[in-house]
C-alpha cells in the first residue's frame, strides 16, 4: 500500500511538472518576431526577423515580381510590378496591418500578432 501510494505520488508529480512546463511554454511562448510570407494562401517563407540578416529577395507570381526587403529586423515590400503599389505604400510591416499585394496574391504578416487587438478596421 505504501509503495503503491508513493508510486501514485510520483505519477502525479510527473503530471504536475509536465503541466507546469506546458503552461509556462503556452503563456510565455515567444512570438512577435516571426513573419510569414504567403502566396495565394500558402506559406512560402517563415522568417524570424530577430535572426535574419539584411537582404532582399524576389518572389514571382505568374511572371510578375515582388521584391521583399529585410533590414534591421524590419520587413517591407520594396518594389512590385503591380499597377497600384498599395503594398509598397504600406511601408514597413507593423503588427496591426498585413502588407498585401492583391494582384500577386502576396501577404506578409506577423505569424502571431501580439498587439492585444483582435482586428483592425481601416
Amino acid at each position: 500500500m505504501i509503495r503503491s501510494q508513493k508510486f501514485w505520488i510520483a505519477v502525479c508529480a510527473v503530471i504536475f511538472a509536465a503541466s507546469a512546463v506546458w503552461c509556462i511554454l503556452v503563456l510565455t511562448g515567444s512570438h512577435g518576431n516571426t513573419v510569414t510570407v504567403k502566396q495565394d494562401g500558402r506559406v512560402i517563407f517563415t522568417l524570424d526577423l530577430s535572426k535574419e540578416t539584411d537582404r532582399e529577395f524576389t518572389v514571382e507570381y505568374e511572371g510578375r515580381k515582388n521584391i521583399i526587403e529585410i533590414s534591421g529586423g524590419r520587413i517591407r515590400m520594396k518594389a512590385a510590378d503591380c499597377p497600384d503599389h498599395v503594398c509598397v505604400n504600406t511601408g514597413w510591416l507593423t503588427a496591426n496591418i498585413p502588407i498585401v499585394c492583391l494582384p500577386n496574391k502576396l501577404v506578409i504578416e506577423y505569424a502571431e500578432p501580439d498587439t492585444g487587438l483582435d482586428a483592425t478596421a481601416g
Binding site: G91, W92, T94, N96, I97, T115, G116, L117, D118, A119, T120, A121, G122
Partner: peptide
C-alpha cells in the same frame, strides 16, 4: 472584441 481603428496618418492605430 478589441478592434483597432487604423491611424490615417500611417502605421498603427
Amino acid at each position: 472584441w478589441k478592434i483597432g481603428i487604423r491611424d490615417p496618418h500611417g502605421e498603427g492605430t
